[in-house]
Amino acid sequence: MFYIRLFATYLRIGILGELEYRANFWISLVQSALDLCVALGGLAVVFNHTDTLGGWRQEELLALVGVYFLIGGLIRTIIRPSMTKFMDDVRQGTLDFTLTKPADSQVLVSIQSIEIWRLVDVLIALPVLGIALLRLGARLGLLDTAVFAVTLLSGALIIYSFWLMLSTCAFWFVKVENIQVIFMSMWQAGRWPVSIYPAWLRAVLTFLVPVAFATTVPASAVSGRITDASLVGTVALAVAMLLVSRWFWRVGIRFYSGASA
């Protein structure tokens, strides 16, 4: 409850801060539109020359694009700005303020900066997803919807845990914010179903950088091609990564305060 109220406060501050820079709304809109151009343009060029890609039809890939934008919006709205601020704080020593606060430092760090306009990505994702579903002619039953929601949530948690672990490295290395660059470039590989990649790259995108779980898995849930095994696996991984990232965060904090060094 306390943390929900805290989140609401940060959200309010996020809105206030962004209102100061109203131009950001337009900038975000342009950026999201550009992203959509890349995604749809890429699809258009590819499907100009083929009917299916690795067994996925164009509508199914459109659904994938929708999921990609939905999770991408979450990353851009909360995860990335918060983690960026965290890394800045480590570098400038202002993390000390966070650590002297009587609240869980991981939570504080994870929600401390919210770029509200980035929700534009989510606004774009919804119609894309809707159109894809219409064209698929799919009728989502209650169960399908639940499975989709569960995979989506798991995907989001996996991505969050992953970012947290990457960011935690800031305790040891300078300039890790570049990791974001690499993540975002890996992330774009998630616009395509991971099944088309060669095995080693698929492994990278599944386990090293868990892009597959956040995009391909929910998209396969919505297009009715998910297996029970991958559903269970995704949920299990989400729980595991949440725990591991929590543990790693504590290790990082201990290192930062010179406890275990």
Binding site: V46, H49, L53, V176, N178, W192, I196, L201
Partner: peptide, 24 residues
Amino acid sequence: IAMLIWLLGGIIEPLMYLVIWRTV
């Protein structure tokens, strides 16, 4: 570390399109 990260980014993107077009 930063150096390698930029580098990796430069490898991933073309690799992605390579795979897609090869598949097509």
